[in-house]
Design a protein around this nucleic acid. Structure first.
Length: 118
DNA sequence: CTTCTTACA
DNA sequence: TGTAAGAA
């Protein structure tokens, strides 16, 4: 188990294995495939951020459900793009005073529906 | 002891 | 993907 490290939300590969359920072999493989880009210490060891862990967890989930790397790559990209757009709307005030809580929005179409003026 | 790279099955 | 080797 996590006997040591990981202050400030950055973790060595061993901890990431435990948090995501992926093997170090798979984690390094996905990096070579361009799905993640952990930073390196001066000693060349990989350090993963919380975002990297979240991304790897999604990869793990999709993988377990039979999706190939190509599909996983597309889904991750779409999901992060949507999230980025939503953050943009929220930060620009588009949602101000219209949503009183976090409704379960499944996609952009539904979100826009909720944002329509009545 | 943990992680890294390279290489083979 | 798993695992072995040798280095860091």
């Amino acid at each position: 188990m996590a006997v040591y490290p990981s202050l400030k939300g950055i973790y060595p590969i061993g901890i990431v294995e435990e948090k995501t359920g992926l093997t170090s072999r798979q984690i390094r493989y996905y990096e070579n495939m361009g799905l993640i880009s952990p930073i390196r210490t001066q000693g060349k060891q990989r350090r993963y951020t919380e975002k990297d862990v979240i991304r790897l967890s999604r990869i793990k989930y999709l993988k377990d459900n039979g999706f190939d790397l190509k599909s996983i790559r597309e889904k991750i990209e779409l999901l992060e793009k949507s999230t980025k757009d939503l953050d943009l709307m929220i930060n620009s005030g588009a949602v101000q005073g219209r949503l009183t809580s976090l409704y379960p929005v499944s996609n952009r179409a539904v979100l826009m529906k909720l944002l329509e003026k009545n």
